[in-house]
Structure formats: structure tokens, C-alpha cells
């Protein structure tokens, strides 16, 4: 009973972070800031949901599988994010900044960036 309540809480918290991260993907201004939102989904969203399912299923082989998935996501997510950031930088996308102080003038620079889209 207690386990179910904890699982509920973890799943709902995970769902909250997932939707928030996805909302950030839509709302934030450029690819680098969107990466932070995507990282949120990968770490806390997936993490809390998988942890909730671990609590729900108790100690058995499903938990081992869930922990494997969780560990794999936590290891690969930063690498994929880093690869995206590096490719975007070398592809000519300038990071969005508030001031537009030569380090990039936001959306226009991003649209004109050398990336094929």
C-alpha cells in the first residue's frame, strides 16, 4: 500500500518533469537552451518514472531491467547532448544571447546558421 502511494507520487512527479521539459523544448529560444529542457526530460522525467516503476514492482527481475535502462539513459543522455552541442557549434549556429553582443544575435543568426534544415 505504502509502495503504491510512493510509486504514484514518483510517477506523477516524473510526468510533471516530462511535460515541463517538453514545454521547454517548444518555448525556449534556441537550440542550446532547448538542450537544457531536453536534459530535464532525460534525467528527472525518465528517472522518476522508472524509479516509480521500480518501487511498484518491488525487488525482482523487472527492477534489474528498469535499473539497466535508467543507468543507460543517464550515461548516454549527456553524451548525445554534448554531441548535439558540438555539432551545432561547428555547424555555425551561434548561441542566443540577451544582449546580442557579437556572440550571436539570437534567432536571426540561428535561422541563417549554416546548418541544412
Amino acid at each position: 500500500m505504502v509502495a503504491e502511494v510512493v510509486a504514484w507520487a514518483l510517477l506523477m512527479a516524473g510526468a510533471f518533469f516530462l511535460v515541463t521539459g517538453a514545454l521547454g523544448m517548444v518555448r525556449l529560444p534556441d537550440v542550446f537552451t532547448r538542450m537544457h529542457a531536453a536534459g530535464m526530460t532525460d534525467t528527472m522525467g525518465a528517472g522518476l518514472i522508472l524509479a516509480g516503476m521500480c518501487v511498484y514492482s518491488g525487488a525482482n527481475f523487472e527492477t534489474v531491467r528498469l535499473l539497466l535502462i535508467l543507468g543507460f539513459l543517464w550515461f548516454t543522455s549527456p553524451i548525445a547532448t554534448h554531441a548535439t552541442a558540438k555539432a551545432a557549434l561547428s555547424g555555425g549556429v551561434r548561441p542566443f544571447t540577451l544582449a546580442g553582443d557579437g556572440s550571436g544575435d539570437g534567432r536571426t543568426a540561428e535561422r541563417e546558421g549554416g546548418a541544412p534544415s
Partner: peptide, 29 residues
Amino acid sequence: VAMCLAMCRALLGPTAYDRVLALNNIGTK
């Protein structure tokens, strides 16, 4: 719902990296 939002980003772009980021995110989900 989150996948739909990420799909919006994948369709809107504007750069290829946004799309790759969105696709990776959809894959995680």
C-alpha cells in the same frame, strides 16, 4: 503529450540540430 510537444519542435525546426535534439528526446520518451 510530451512526445507531441517534442514533435512540434521537430517539425518547426528551425535548424537541423533542433530536429535531432527533438528526435533524440522522442526516442528517450
